[in-house]
């Protein structure tokens, strides 16, 4: 498997105090959409900045398309299109001027630059705003301009940090569809904590927690981790009748059931029992009772559940998270850099 991005024991500690990235091993296959998932402060943005060479690692190495990442590695940045979370633009410029400046920074000759920036502005729907100064742009327009800026040099690798943060549903849909389109010809690494985005667009996912990668694999592997053994059933009927159905369901072998929010029953199926059989029995009880079924679903979104489970497991592992083998490999030089 060819890798577009690879990190080996990547470690970043700010001012010798704050561990932002801890012994990170990341492998992103060429042509994939890789979702870097994690709560705020997990180290996602720091990882992207280390790949860009905006920061130096204290230990370990990062490679993009086989080239070592560092502040001096302009060839690496030439192959990366970066979209920050909330891009900061020079507000006094107009979008064409800004993209033209960035095109010059990427050493794109004028005869290529001009047509490309025009077509990009059209593609992201900013053609009608070319006469406006960037400072007058809404959040959505800024994100679209950031997207255009990241695509200007036609890079084979895209690093997008929270691309849907603060967007309305239409802009969010546009961004997700664009990522799917771009993934046909590029490698896309998306850092986010919005699980539904990952669910829709990613082939691979990595979950970061407190600077560590606690899971990395395909979306299928991620979902296989899910123990989908709880279901919520929303019922229509009198509260007494709903409670009675819940009591009957709880009497079934391997099933625990409880009423939640007056009209909802949460059913859990124990390990070793057939979920299908248990649910069929519960549905029969509902059918026989004086209530009607309004909706049926698993307790939580699958990916969300798997993600939360991963985080809980990581916390529960406690001291076992310490990996002695990696401590030997990392030639740590911690404490010599600031945030």
């Amino acid at each position: 498997m060819d890798l577009a991005i690879r990190t080996e024991h990547l470690t970043k500690v700010y001012s010798g105090r704050v561990i932002a990235v801890n012994d990170l091993n990341l492998e992103v296959p060429v042509g994939s959409v890789y979702g870097l998932l994690g709560p705020n402060g997990a180290g996602k943005t720091t990882t992207l900045r280390l790949l860009l060479g905006l920061q130096r690692p204290n230990a370990g190495r990062a490679y993009v398309l086989g080239s070592l990442c560092s502040p001096a590695a302009t060839s690496v940045r030439q192959s990366i299109g970066y979209l920050p979370t909330h891009p900061v633009f020079p507000g006094h410029l107009r979008p064409v001027e800004y993209l033209d400046l960035l095109g010059k920074l990427s050493r794109i000759p004028s005869e290529v630059r001009k047509p490309r920036l025009t077509s990009l502005l059209r593609a992201v729907g900013l053609l009608s705003a070319t006469n406006q100064r960037i400072r007058t742009f809404s959040t959505g327009m800024r994100t679209r301009l950031g997207i255009a800026a990241s695509l200007l040099a036609d890079p084979p690798v895209l690093l997008w940090d929270e691309p849907t943060a603060g967007l309305d549903p239409a802009a969010r849909r546009f961004t997700l569809d664009l990522i799917t389109d771009l993934a046909r010809t590029r490698t896309v690494l998306v850092a986010t904590h919005i699980l539904s985005d990952i669910d829709q667009i990613c082939d691979y996912v990595g979950v970061m927690h407190e600077g560590r990668m606690i899971f990395s694999g395909s979306m299928r592997e991620m979902k296989q981790r899910l123990r989908c053994d709880d279901f919520s059933l929303e019922l229509d009927g009198s509260p007494e009748e709903i409670r009675r159905v819940a009591e009957q369901a709880a009497a079934l072998p391997g099933v625990t059931a409880a009423v939640r929010d007056t009209h909802t029953i949460v059913v859990q199926v124990g390990n070793g029992f057939s979920r299908a059989a248990a649910m069929a029995a519960v549905l029969n009880l509902i059918d026989a009772g004086n209530v009607s079924l309004q909706s049926l679903g698993s307790g939580q979104n699958e990916t969300e559940y798997a993600y939360l489970q991963l985080l809980q497991e990581d916390v529960a592992h406690g001291f076992r998270r310490f990996d002695l083998t990696s401590a030997h490999v990392a030639d740590a030089n911690i404490g010599d850099s600031g945030p």
């Binding site: 502040p71 302009t74 990366i80 920050p84 891009p87 020079p90 960035l102």
Partner: peptide
């Protein structure tokens, strides 16, 4: 610095 990192120094430009 933020604007710099986002706009200019994330491009193929040396410091």
């Amino acid at each position: 610095l933020d604007a710099l990192a986002d706009g200019i120094l994330s491009r193929p430009v040396t410091r």
